[in-house]
């Protein structure tokens, strides 16, 4: 089977500033991948490139063999690290919106998750707390049967109980034939669910390997390895 995600000599610069530099990466299906790196390392840039929100300065990205475009966007479910929905809309309207645009959107799954959390689909987003809005966004993304889920800081800025809910939602709802890329600083919270780890520093990929292999190599957990490698 071909690679799900392939980056070839991928470079993104913002004027003179570096975003990512000469990234070469091949990811297969059915994996949960942690994208780890300190602030400003290029994690969000890489994610935005994968989702088609940025255009590479050079190099290319292929998803399921296709260049970034409407076809790949239909296969990628993206959760940004900001609240990005039209706050004047009701949850039900947003569900309909997703169902209309994404053929892989599973309405029943979304409604079940909303019910489990006690979120009223007739409620408008602007009346909800920040945490509830983030949960709604996560539900929308995880209700898709996408080929690739890209989650940018899904557990950043939420309390530990909400983190457990988010991780549980991800694990119990993602398409098992798909891959999930999770970008985060909170490594200890997600370490147990990862299959593979990508470590990125100053726009370059420092390491890509299976979690177990990386733990064996450094003789410690991923969290301890991260603290050691990025010690200030």
């Amino acid at each position: 089977m071909g690679a799900l995600l392939e980056c070839r000599n991928l470079t993104k610069r913002y004027g003179n500033k570096r975003g990512v530099e000469q990234i070469n990466l091949v990811l297969g299906s059915g994996r949960i991948i942690g994208l780890l790196g300190p602030n400003g390392s290029g994690k969000t840039t890489l994610i935005k490139l994968i989702c088609g929100l940025l255009t590479p300065t050079s190099g290319e990205i292929l998803i399921n063999g296709s260049k970034i475009g409407p076809e790949t966007k239909a296969q990628v479910a993206y959760l940004p690290d900001v609240t990005y929905l039209d706050e004047s809309m009701k949850v039900k309207q947003i569900l309909d919106y997703f169902a209309d645009f994404y053929p892989d959107f599973n309405m029943h799954r979304a409604i079940d998750m909303l019910e489990a959390l006690g979120i009223n689909p007739r409620e408008r987003l602007k009346t909800m707390s920040k945490g509830t809005k983030e949960k709604v966004q996560l539900i929308l993304v995880m209700s898709r049967d996408a080929k690739l889920y890209v989650l940018d800081e899904p557990i950043g800025g939420v309390d530990p109980a909400a983190r457990d809910f988010i991780l549980h939602t991800i694990l119990s709802n993602y398409n098992k034939e798909a891959s999930v890329i999770i970008s985060t600083h909170l490594i200890s919270d997600i370490e147990q669910i990862l299959d593979d780890v990508i470590v990125i520093r100053e726009g370059h990929i420092l390491e890509v390997s299976g979690k177990e292999a990386m733990c064996n190599k450094y003789g410690c957990s991923i969290n301890d390895m991260f603290r050691e490698v990025f010690r200030c």
Partner: peptide, 8 residues
């Protein structure tokens, strides 16, 4: 973030 990740 939503508009430009739609398959459009």
């Amino acid at each position: 973030y939503l508009t430009f990740t739609l398959p459009a």
